[in-house]
Design a protein around this nucleic acid. Structure first.
Ligand SMILES: [Zn+2]
Length: 117
DNA sequence: AATGCCGGGGG
DNA sequence: CCCCCGGCATT
């Protein structure tokens, strides 16, 4: 493609007027839902025991970063996303040095489930 | 070179 | 089921 078009083409598919999933993805799955509250929240001792996540210090950090974004309708929609190389996913965002912060899929070199395409 | 992912492998 | 890398496609 001729550059420009690749990004533009992505925009066409990204902001297409169809297939915007109304009920979002599988709620049971871990699609990084900002609304981590949910449920009776009687007493959730720890966060998701994703195996012994290396570096325990980051655990509280990740938990502490609770945002007042309750039921955010949609993320920064219509984001001129590009093709590979500019699509910031877990890997580029955090880096190999913070692998423990990637999503499960990325950690196992699978299709990223946090930032779908 | 690096990201991103399928296929394949180990416990 | 949970966990991960080799190797490939793509940039
Ligand atoms: Zn990811």
């Amino acid at each position: 493609m001729d550059h420009v078009l690749s990004s533009l083409f992505c925009f066409i598919q990204a902001c297409s007027p169809v297939q915007v999933s109304v009920a979002s993805r599988t709620p049971g799955c871990e699609g990084w839902n900002p609304s981590a509250s949910v449920s009776g929240h009687s007493n959730t001792p720890v966060v998701k025991p994703r195996c012994r996540s290396v570096s325990v210090g980051e655990q509280w950090l990740q938990q502490n970063r609770l945002q007042p974004m309750t039921a955010s309708p949609s993320r920064t929609h219509c984001s001129f996303r590009k093709g590979r190389g500019e699509a910031k996913k877990c890997r580029k965002v955090y880096g190999v040095e913070r692998k423990d912060q990637w999503c499960t899929a990325c950690r196992w070199k699978k299709a990223c489930q946090r930032f779908p395409d």
